[in-house]
Design a protein around this nucleic acid. Sequence first.
DNA 1: AAAAAAATACCGACTGGTCGGTTTGTTTTA
DNA 2: TAAAACAAACCGACCAGTCGGTATTTTTTT
Lengths: 194, 194
Amino acid sequence: MQQRSEETQSQIVKSAIKLFSTHGYTAASVDMICKDAGISKGAFYHHFGSKQTLFLALLDQWLTTIDSSIEAAHHKTVPEMFLQITEAYPYIIKTAEEGLPMFLEFWLQASRDKKIWQASITPYRRYHKYFTALIKKGVEEGSFVEVDPETASRLIVSTAMGLLLQSLLDPEGANWEKVAKESSDMLVNSLLKK
Amino acid sequence: MQQRSEETQSQIVKSAIKLFSTHGYTAASVDMICKDAGISKGAFYHHFGSKQTLFLALLDQWLTTIDSSIEAAHHKTVPEMFLQITEAYPYIIKTAEEGLPMFLEFWLQASRDKKIWQASITPYRRYHKYFTALIKKGVEEGSFVEVDPETASRLIVSTAMGLLLQSLLDPEGANWEKVAKESSDMLVNSLLKK
DNA sequence: AAAAAAATACCGACTGGTCGGTTTGTTTTA
DNA sequence: TAAAACAAACCGACCAGTCGGTATTTTTTT
């Protein structure tokens, strides 16, 4: 019983990720997901209370992987970490291409729902705090020029979000990987002490 | 005949803007818009071929106002223009708060439609070109340091989009007007020749 | 200028279909 | 054999768009 149940659940998740990212959150219907997963609607609602619940589970899973990758870089120096992020650009851009639209859509749709909003804003604020602390540490270490860590954090996150969004709007409009690298060079150059 | 017709049409547009920005593109139904405008569904479809057509008309109208405001600043020097943009932040943020979600939602929903994609990507590319030219002019004038105008343009637009998006996701999370001002100061400082 | 004709603007019930979710009944598993 | 897992028919709300017909305005005719 447990064996089959887990198999079904992971099939639902797998199909959901696939269909949410290709069709978007709204356009990917529960029926569609069930059909793709090769199960019935009854099975779906046996495992997940609602479509929203399923998405929240996906969100949670996604956040966990981010957390663990952050955890893994915990012992490095601040400039090293920034360098590592820079090197991860191709992967980040590819991941964003697939995932960002569905998260954006979900956020927009749920921005009027207090509970959902909370679920998405809490990790966002957590990452912002983490990033701010990182920059503060860099300033204290003496590797960064004296900036307001709060503002610098917003600025860096903004740049990342904006680049990702632009690459989404117009994938063929530029060599986004190159632009991302050069942009972060410009940013880091104005941040790093020489 | 013309008098009444124009009146009806502008009522539809007025209600559409109101409901699209408060409820979002999908959630604002045609019935809803008709009811708010005080007209029938028949009248709606007499004036607009579809819900999408109506939105495209709104988009067009919006772009026209942007174009004319750009036109108005055509004789100023480059640093003056950046300063002016900085001063317009409160207005920009407020406008984005109301309009950006509905445009984002529409774009996400329709991004797989060639025709719609074209209608949104063309003005985007136009503005990018304009902005790039502006920076290039600034560099040639000697007021900016030697940067690649293409990259700098992407960077600036990214920052703006990212800030707008963040302020949308978490309006209470920061004093966004202040963050926007300080961020652009940081950016312009690293761009301006001293 | 008044009547007739034509064109335009408008109404609202209706259609066909979608979607998230429920219910009822069956199979599988422990 | 009882509980968990699943299947499939079903429900009600909703929604974009249609259509036959009516009201209003403009144009043409007399």
